[in-house]
Design a protein around this nucleic acid. Structure first.
Length: 584
RNA sequence: GCUCCGGUAGUAUAGUCCGGUCAAGUAUAACGGCCUCUCGAGCCGUGGACCCGGGUCCGAAUCCCGGCCGGAGCACCA
């Protein structure tokens, strides 16, 4: 039977075409239809050409019908089909490669303790931790502190990293410090030397580089193991000085990437001149990154390495060593660089800025360090969610703060109490207040159970006036003669405006009046109920003003919303309230 | 220069491996409206993208080739 005679198929095409046409201004498109039809009836794949002709025929029939008529037919014959369905799904991480080949997934985060943690490290941390959790595996912390000279570790950062990790919700299951494992690295160095898989190179670096570039071995490479071990001992006992000898792991000298050829594994650092912050002058031979990391990843049973793509060639280098030792290289995921608009995410810039005093400290609001984000009231959940959404792709990403704020707002909005903060206070004097008013302001607009702040406004008996603090911004926006509502209190009519103050008269009490006239709603603080407050903004400038007196009882670290101003985190609260601005 | 990697709306992401129900989904931002005693939240709606050029194919975001753009590595750093 040819397709042309297949009644059922013709009907399917007609239905699909009509549906398609009603969705696209009365004109169905043959290409899209063929896709849909084949999607539903895979067996037609081989007859695509024939099908294409048939679809073309039916489509021109359908397209010649008017749009109204098409719609009528569809509504009559397939009323169900017009309904749109929306599938909602929670985003999770894609599966890890070959996770089922290992008895347990083990991931690691391995920082050099030479700086505090920042958003740039968040990807390695959160993805490694999240994957470990997803597969009920283990997440290890490993301090890579084997360079006492160029990237010297600093004692305070071991602890700050532990704290930051636990704040972000990624507590490690185990912790290792590489500087405690030096004898282990020595053992493997000897083994590689003994097996002629490594050699002690005493060439001056430039000379070696020339040889390597021309794919030739240097004179040290082929010396016998006994000689290598003798040289090794000389490295250890001081027979060579810093820079005079280095252990190299043998690779392929013909490897297309010169950077891979016979890479250095251990070198000498003058222990007197460059003592290690933890161990002092105990060692003079220190492993280099590829050696210690490569060994540890295997020895600690790491199954999945998640790190930046700058490490791609390091994997190639390390794989040579793995072959020498007959080990299998773990799965490795290399993600792209992460930036956030306007912030420096490089350790060197952060360290330099703090040291030079450009920033006030590691938690300066201009920085994207964890401590700075924490101080501003950015929640760990928001950061985690954002990083998980970004995932582990090899593309570079530039995040915008707005994005982070949106995640954070979702966390903060339901839990933050509301208060009034008057920035750059200006005086508002209201006349003709004939009686005392009682204002009851909810702490949260959607959750009355959270309670209220209450203020009684009693006019001065001599002239029936009441005086408030309001923001200069609201004074600037006010117009003489206009009505303004003091939120949850009463409406006033603006009589006169000066630079730093305004006068008004009582207009009415009901909220309905304000709605009818579309009066602006502004926040206020009764004179006498003002509590000095400063808000440190994200650019480190300070906005001075008054918080309402109910804020006196706020505890440091709580995050609140100053209405019509933004979310802030209470930083200090004694004679004066100091808050850090998070975002609108 | 050499060696690698990557390019989907302003931003981020889904889809790419294995071509078809993708005239491209989602979030956020923008815009408009509704709701709300906050400029917050919520709800509804609108606009917005497959880097470019060829090729294969009935059919390409997806496969192939070329180009362009971006990034990383090329340390006795991690």
């Amino acid at each position: 039977m040819t397709l042309k005679d297949d009644k059922e198929l013709r009907e399917l095409i007609r239905k699909t075409a009509l549906l398609n046409a009603t969705q696209h201004n009365g004109k169905a498109q043959a290409g899209a239809l063929i896709g849909k039809i084949i999607g539903e009836r895979q067996e037609l794949k081989t007859k695509a050409k024939e099908l294409s002709a048939l679809v073309g025929e039916i489509v021109s029939e359908v397209n010649s019908i008017s749009a109204e008529e098409q719609k009528r037919i569809v509504e009559n014959e397939w009323p169900q089909a017009l309904k749109k369905e929306k599938a909602e799904e929670e985003k999770h991480l894609p599966p890890l490669p070959n996770a089922d080949k290992y008895p347990q997934v083990v991931t690691r985060f391995s920082p050099n303790p030479d700086c505090v943690l920042h958003l740039g490290s968040a990807r390695a941390i959160i993805l490694s931790h999240e994957y470990a959790r997803m597969y009920r595996g283990k997440f290890l912390l490993r301090f890579e502190d084997t360079d006492p000279k160029v990237k010297r570790p600093v004692l305070e950062f071991y602890d700050s990293i532990r704290r930051d990790l636990s704040w972000i919700g990624c507590k490690p299951d185990e912790e290792y410090i590489q500087s405690d494992r030096i004898p282990l690295y020595y053992e493997y160095a000897e083994r590689l030397l003994k097996d002629s898989n490594a050699y002690v190179c005493t060439c001056i670096p430039d000379e070696f580089r020339k040889k390597a570039l021309s794919q030739k071995p240097c004179n040290c490479r082929n010396l016998p193991p006994t000689e290598q071990l003798e040289r090794w001992n000389r490295m250890l006992n001081g027979g060579y000085k810093e820079g005079e000898a280095v252990v190299r792991v043998k690779t392929d000298l013909k490897h297309p990437n010169p950077a891979v050829r016979d890479w250095p594994a251990l070198r000498i650092i003058n222990p007197k001149k460059y003592p290690h912050p933890r161990l002092g002058s105990k060692y003079r031979v220190w492993p280099l990154y590829n050696f210690s990391t490569g060994l540890d990843d295997h020895l600690m049973g790491i199954t999945h390495i998640i790190r930046g793509k700058e490490h791609l060639t390091n994997q190639v280098r390390q794989e040579y060593m793995y072959r020498h030792l007959c080990w299998k290289y773990p799965e490795a995921i290399h993600y792209g660089r992460l930036q956030i608009t306007g912030a420096f995410l490089s350790k060197s810039k952060i360290v330099q800025g703090v040291r030079e005093g450009t920033y006030r400290g590691w938690d300066d609001p201009r920085l994207a360090t964890f401590v700075a984000l924490r101080r501003r009231g950015i929640t760990p959940e928001a950061i985690r969610k954002m990083i998980i959404d970004v995932g582990s792709k090899p593309q570079d990403v530039t995040l915008s703060w707005e994005n982070l704020y949106a995640y954070n707002r979702k966390n903060l909005d339901p839990t933050s109490d509301r208060y009034f903060f008057v920035s750059e206070p200006a005086e508002l004097k209201v006349q003709q207040v004939s009686k005392a008013f009682h204002a009851k302001l909810p702490l949260h607009p959607e959750k009355p159970a959270r309670g209220y702040r209450e203020y009684t406004i009693t006019p001065k008996s001599s002239d029936n006036t009441a005086t408030f603090w309001i923001s200069k911004k609201d004074i600037d926006a006010a117009e003489t003669g206009a009505t303004v509502r003091l939120m949850e209190l009463f409406n006033v009519k603006i009589e006169s405006i000066k630079a730093d103050s305004a006068e008004a008269s009582f207009a009415s009490e009901s909220y309905e009046d304000a709605r009818k006239t579309k009066a602006r709603l502004i926040h206020w603080i009764p004179k006498g109920e003002a509590f000095p407050c400063q808000v440190v903004m994200p650019d480190a400038t300070v906005t001075e003003g008054f918080a309402e007196s109910a804020c006196k009882k706020l505890k440091p670290d709580s995050v609140i919303q100053f209405e019509r101003f933004g979310f802030v985190r209470v930083d200090e609260n004694d004679a004066k309230l100091t808050a850090y601005y998070a975002h609108k």
